[in-house]
Nucleic acid binder design. Structure first.
Length: 607
DNA sequence: GTAGGGTTAG
């Protein structure tokens, strides 16, 4: 059998029978091209098969067939390039394209748009620009497909939308795809206003509207957080009769989740007459952010309705377990992920690291992190935040250095993670060294949050004066979080005057932050200034708002118990106080002296 | 026989 030359017997039998038969047919037709019934030249059947293989993910088989073709025309080359692109093998697609050009085969509009799609996915602007040059050289500036693909590539690869807009303006008669591509370009880079501006222009020019334009317009509303515009576009969707299109409905559901409220999202969800996995994922994610317990209920409901969870589902479900700090549930979810073979997904692995850290099992976080075959900046950052929260400053610092050695360029967020870890572990000089390196080596301009971290770093260690000097030297006006870090330090190290200054700065910026009054009144109380203390308390009562008491919760034998200061907690309370007494005894033995200054507000808040 | 835009995570 001639096919044996193409594939091993095992591989051959792994191919679905329909393709297997046509493979034999195509192969015979290419091998016996002297048959009078078949035309000479490149096999149309073989080209069809390349496409067919690629669609099924059998890209290796497609390539073997391509290599075996006695003659390859531009269509066969294009099918192979497009095949690699559709299977996410972008560098192979680019290599094919280069080889084709080197072999003297002239690309057509199909080839160039396929090549551009690959450039876009690789974010390879220089390759894309090269294709643009070839498009001009071969006189394909009039092709709508090439122009739209060029716009898409520039919108994805360039720092600004200027290049994409330039291509757009050069298109004489824009079609629906041109408009949608431009709106998507703006929206996907986070510029929802830009996207909506183009959408408005599209309406003014009476361009053809279809479900694609509406789903991206709704997404643009979501990204700017505009519920009013979102509802307006929802009405337009109904007017145009696109309210039964699933992707449009899904984007509307997402809009209600993020800009409306859960009750509205829920109502819309139940009104939807068709649902797919994305619908369920959107709702689960919406609930994860605002009501994690309910998101877990929706997840089991989804499964009972026969939907099989994917990476997106599990990422949200894992995040819900992290929010609730329910280790047992998180472990079960992790088990489900491994069983389905989804543990190789990068974003999902990152979520699992975070979940274990938030559920108190930092060793499991580390285990997942260590076993990852590839890591991104989020992986490293998540692990560092976990270490920092568990008080493992040294480990976080080591991880940061390892990350730099592995060639990953740090960003502001990972610096915040390592600075915060240093702060909590008292590694002041290390932290300051990182702060200097951030500016000096990586040219990262510190923002409010970074200054807040460094103020906290110095402040916690008792270097409060230095922290104040840093605030004074800031090149922009410090916000309440920076002053808040200083206030915390003043309270901890008993510096009432500086503390009062910090508190006043916060109250200038945020007069309604009740917590600041609490801190200020405690400073007065610690100084014995009871008149000032009473004034503060009176002010707070006049504000009508209360500082919400901190709530803690713990999972014991599949049951979650939550409590606030002074909680009676039913019959278990005597056990809790028993353990507390024991802990206090241990702390005193170790030489800790309790800070009684904060007792005043604790008692008042509890009542 | 070969090419296009939209919805869900971090």
């Amino acid at each position: 059998m001639s096919t044996k030359r193409l594939l091993s017997t095992a591989d051959f039998h792994a191919i679905p029978p329909i393709i297997r038969n046509s493979l034999q047919w195509a192969h015979n037709s290419t091998a016996q091209s002297n048959t009078p019934f078949l035309p000479k030249g490149p096999s149309v059947l073989a080209t069809n098969l390349i496409k067919s293989y690629s669609e099924r993910g059998l890209i290796k088989e497609a390539r073997i067939l391509f290599d075996e073709m006695p003659e390859r025309d531009v269509v066969a080359w294009t099918a192979m390039i497009a095949g690699y692109t559709s299977c996410n093998h972008y560098s192979h697609a680019w290599a094919m394209f280069c080889q084709m050009v080197r072999n003297g085969v002239e690309p057509n509009a199909f080839t160039l748009s396929s090549a551009l799609k690959g450039c876009k996915s690789m974010k390879a602007l220089s390759y894309g620009a090269l294709v643009h040059g070839l498009a001009i050289k071969h006189g394909m500036k009039e092709s709508m497909y090439v122009n739209n693909a060029l716009m898409d590539m520039y919108a994805t690869c360039c720092v600004s939308m200027d290049e994409a807009c330039m291509v757009f303006q050069e298109i004489d008669v824009k079609n629906a795809v041109s408009w949608t591509t431009l709106i998507t370009g703006y929206t996907h880079r986070g510029d929802g206003y830009g996207g909506l501006r183009v959408f408005r222009q599209m309406l003014l020019e009476e361009a053809e509207l279809n479900p694609f334009s509406f789903s991206i317009a709704v997404r643009a509303c979501t990204s700017i957080g505009s519920y009013a515009l979102g509802k307006l576009i929802h009405s337009a969707v109904i007017t145009h009769g696109f309210d039964t299109n699933l992707p449009v409905m899904n984007s509307i559901l997402d809009m209600y989740c993020r800009c409306g409220g859960l009750s509205e999202a829920n109502q819309y969800f139940h009104e939807m007459n068709e649902k797919d996995l994305i619908t369920w994922n959107t709702l689960i994610t919406g609930y994860e952010r605002l009501d994690s317990t309910e998101s877990l209920h929706i997840f089991s409901q989804m499964e009972s309705e026969g939907f099989s969870p994917n990476c997106f589902t599990f990422t949200s479900v894992t995040a819900a377990c992290a929010n609730l700090a329910v280790l047992n549930c998180g472990q079960q979810v992790h088990g489900g992920i491994v069983r389905r073979g989804l543990d190789g997904n990068l974003a999902l692995a990152n979520a699992i690291i975070d979940m274990y850290a938030k559920c108190g099992s930092i060793s499991d976080s580390r285990k997942v992190f260590s076993e990852m075959t590839c890591r991104d900046l989020v992986s490293w950052t998540t692990m560092m935040i976990g270490y920092g929260a568990h008080g493992y400053g040294k480990e976080a610092v080591e991880l940061f250095d390892e990350m730099i050695r592995s060639g990953i360029r740090p960003d502001k967020i990972v610096y915040m993670a390592v600075l915060s870890a240093c702060s909590h572990a008292g590694l002041v000089d290390e932290g300051l060294r990182y702060f200097k390196s951030m500016v000096g080596d990586y040219n990262i301009t510190p923002n409010q949050e970074i200054y807040g971290c460094v103020v906290d770093l110095l402040g916690r260690a008792g270097r409060v004066e230095e922290a104040y000097e840093l605030i004074e030297s800031m090149p922009f006006k410090p916000d309440e979080s920076v002053w808040g870090a200083l206030l915390g330090a003043c309270k901890a190290h008993k510096l009432p005057n500086l503390g009062k200054l910090a508190a006043r700065r916060i109250l200038d910026l945020r007069p309604n932050m009740v917590g600041t009054y609490v801190m200020l009144s405690n400073i007065y109380a610690a100084e014995g200034k009871w008149g000032e203390y009473a004034n503060m308390r009176k002010l707070m009562r006049g504000m009508g708002s209360k500082k919400e008491a901190g709530r803690s919760w713990i999972e014991v034998r599949d049951q979650v118990y939550s409590f606030v200061v002074g909680d009676k907690m039913g019959s278990h309370i005597k056990w809790v106080y028993g353990v507390l007494d024991l802990l206090i005894w241990h702390m005193k033995e170790a030489g800790y002296v309790p800070d009684l200054d904060c007792l005043i507000h604790d008692q008042e808040d509890a009542t």
